[in-house]
Amino acid sequence: MACHATFADVVEDPVLYLDAADNPAHPKAWENLGTEGGELLVADKPMELEEGEIKIPALGVSEPNAKYYTTKESHSTFGGPPPKNPPLFFEDWTLEFLCRRNGDFFLEEHHFAGFQNSPREGKQGVRLWIVGGQNLDMSIHAGGSKQGVQPLNLKLEEGVWTWITVVGTNDKSIVAYQDGKEVSEQAGFEFDKSLPIDDISIGANSFDERRRTFNGSFAIVRAYDKALSEAEVNQNISDTFAVDPADKLPTVWAKVKRDYQ
């Protein structure tokens, strides 16, 4: 499977790379610009492609003309039935999201994203959802069963753009970053790279649970089959945003596709 593009200073070889600013498959799917190719189909109802300001004060970023996908109602997610998704294979892994929570859940709760071996809650995977109103947490399946995890200490404040990264080093650690800073670390779990991560959902934990759609927006989603260091996490952020290093005044949106081939 060939890589669709090269990315200037982004850490090489993301297996999944979703960019709302560069999606020729809109509105029926979100095309994967990463090495595994393919696309994530719209589950039932397409997210709305919007253009507006993405502002992250902690990073000195304010871009008025960014593009992003926003959910408006339940059943509005990317990621179809598992056989339709590009399979990913993880031992070490990194998941990145440039996102914003826009309000309270549509139904009884709202989920966020899922990367797991089908069937859902099966042998292996990562499930992310919001608890306590704004806290992003996770469930890990590894070794064929659900594992006990600690809080990620990630907060999605309403109306606030943020950069979320969760890094799993096989059987060693899970480290969470928010806006480039480490906020938690806990023990890791062993992943089997022979098991395909094929139930992939952006905006819900799984295709079957898409009714619990995240009430929010996504601009960038990346997944790697390797554990990124803190320096690499910040390298990816710096490549997405062009920021004056002297005083962090916002400048311009650094388009990820500028080296598109």
Rank of each mutant, 00 (worst) to 15 (best):
E63Y: 14
P83S: 05
G144F: 03
T165R: 03
G143E: 11
L49D: 05
D239L: 06
L228M: 07
E53M: 10
E232P: 09
I202D: 04
K257E: 14
A219K: 08
E185V: 11
A25W: 08
V175M: 04
K146L: 09
P87K: 07
P82C: 06
F89Y: 15
E63A: 11
L33Y: 15
G122N: 09
D44G: 03
D199P: 02
D137V: 10
I130H: 06
S173R: 04
N205H: 13
A113I: 03
D192R: 02
M47E: 08
V10K: 08
V256W: 12
N234P: 11
N85K: 04
G148D: 12
N102G: 04
F214I: 00
F7L: 12
Q178W: 06
P151W: 02
D137C: 04
R258Y: 02
G34H: 04
P46K: 03
G34T: 12
A246M: 14
V61F: 10
A20M: 05
D244G: 06
T169V: 10
P196H: 02
E73G: 15
M1S: 13
G132A: 00
Q147I: 02
P250E: 08
D13H: 11
Y17I: 05
R210L: 03
Y17F: 15
T77E: 07
L152C: 01
G180P: 00
E121R: 14
S238G: 13
F214M: 01
Q186S: 05
V149F: 01
H110F: 13
F115C: 02
P86I: 05
V166M: 11
P245H: 07
S184W: 09
F191M: 01
K155W: 02
Y17S: 10
G180M: 04
S145H: 14
E73H: 14
D179M: 07
S201G: 03
L128E: 05
V15F: 09
